[in-house]
Structures are given as structure tokens and as C-alpha cells.
């Protein structure tokens, strides 16, 4: 465990906590993409299936349980508890466009042709595009609640920090993870516009509004 990965995981955790707090506080899931949350749930379930047969550490197990349960809880909040606040008419990104390419990539680029490896690779590719419905929704509405913006920012920082983690692990352990490394680069690139607007507006105390 190095500092980049640890901070990345904390930031990932923070993003989810921020989102739950926002939904509960405002009793509304307005501005949050259900599709993105659904895709993350799919990411976690397909990736952490190894919790039953591959023990890494207590930290690892705890975090896996946290990510799966908290994301499913968000789905519950959006689908059941605060259902009326979520407007499906602005959450229109076609998730097939993310799921299908991820499935194809998983079948071509993986660490071995076993169900576990293919699901793992699928989850990594899927994660790199899972934010798209949320960013698309943001673009349609043109502005967002401060907390939604912080949520997306924390999520972006998480994957960004995994890049130095991979470089660090390559240098210190001589080990490479090309699939996750490449997927992290793609994911971070998707956030670049968002980061730019976050920096120029939110950091200066202005409302998050798209130009």
C-alpha cells in the first residue's frame, strides 16, 4: 500500500459519503444520474466477486463490502426512498454504449480466459466510462448542486491518484497492470473538462455552471 493508493481509496470513499449525505440532507436525488450509480453497482459486483475466494487483507475486504453496500444503498435511495425527485427524462445517456464496448474490450484484453478474469477486466473498462451519464446529465442541466460537483470531483481524483500508484508500483515492485493503468488514463481524460471547470469556477467560490 502506498500513499497514492490510500489517498485514492479515501477519496473514492469520500465521494460516496458525500453523495449519500446530499441525498439524505436534501431528501432529493435531483441532479444525480441513476444510470451512473447503476453502472458503478455493476462495476463493484463484477469486480468484487472475488471476495468469496481471494483474500487480500482486512482493509481490502472491508472496502469491498463498503463499496458494494453503499452503492446499492444509493440505488435504493434513488429508486425507492426519494424516487419522485429523480427525473429520468434528463438521465438519457444510453448505457448500452458503455456496457457493450466494455464487454468487447474485456473479451479481447484480459489476464486470462476465465470467468473471473473476464469479469474483472469488464469491471475495469466499465468503470472508466461509468461517469458518462452523470457528465452528460450535467451538460444538459448546465449547472449542479455544490455537493454533486464535489462528488464528481472526489471521484475523478480517485482515479487520477491511481495513475501515480501504478507508476510507483512499477518502480518499487517492477510490477505493471496495463489494463487498469490504461483504463485509469481514459477515465481521467473524461474528467479533464470537468476538472477545468471545477478549477476555474468552484475553486473561486462561484456556482458550478457550464459555459
Amino acid at each position: 500500500m502506498n500513499i497514492f493508493r490510500f489517498l485514492a481509496d479515501l477519496s473514492h470513499m469520500a465521494s460516496i459519503v458525500i453523495l449519500i449525505l446530499q441525498i439524505r440532507k436534501t431528501k432529493s436525488a435531483a441532479g444525480v444520474s441513476y444510470k451512473t450509480q447503476f453502472l458503478y453497482a455493476l462495476v463493484f459486483v463484477t469486480r468484487y466477486i472475488d471476495i468469496f475466494f481471494h483474500y487480500v487483507s482486512l482493509y481490502n475486504t472491508f472496502m469491498k463490502i463498503f463499496f458494494v453496500t453503499s452503492t446499492i444503498y444509493i440505488l435504493y435511495l434513488m429508486r425507492v426512498q426519494y424516487k419522485p425527485s429523480h427525473d429520468p427524462n434528463i438521465d438519457t445517456f444510453r448505457i448500452e454504449y458503455i456496457i457493450a464496448p466494455s464487454a468487447v474490450l474485456a473479451l479481447i484484453i484480459n489476464h486470462g480466459y476465465t470467468l473471473y478474469e473476464i469479469l474483472w477486466s469488464f469491471s475495469v473498462w466499465l468503470e472508466s466510462g461509468a461517469i458518462l451519464p452523470q457528465l452528460f446529465m450535467l451538460q444538459r442541466t448546465g449547472e449542479a448542486e455544490t455537493l454533486t460537483v464535489h462528488y464528481i470531483f472526489a471521484l475523478g481524483i480517485y482515479r487520477l491518484l491511481y495513475i501515480p500508484n501504478w507508476i510507483y508500483r512499477y518502480v518499487t515492485e517492477g510490477r505493471v497492470e496495463p489494463i487498469a493503468f490504461l483504463a485509469s488514463l481514459i477515465q481521467t481524460a473524461l474528467y479533464s473538462d470537468f476538472f477545468y471547470i471545477y478549477y476555474t469556477k468552484v475553486m473561486q467560490g462561484k456556482k458550478f455552471e457550464l459555459p
Partner: peptide, 10 residues
């Protein structure tokens, strides 16, 4: 499986 370093991460 040496390639699958990512399996010890989240």
C-alpha cells in the same frame, strides 16, 4: 498470474 497485479487493489 503475474499480470494480474490489480487483483490486490480495489
Amino acid at each position: 498470474n503475474n499480470g494480474a497485479v490489480g487483483h490486490d487493489e480495489l
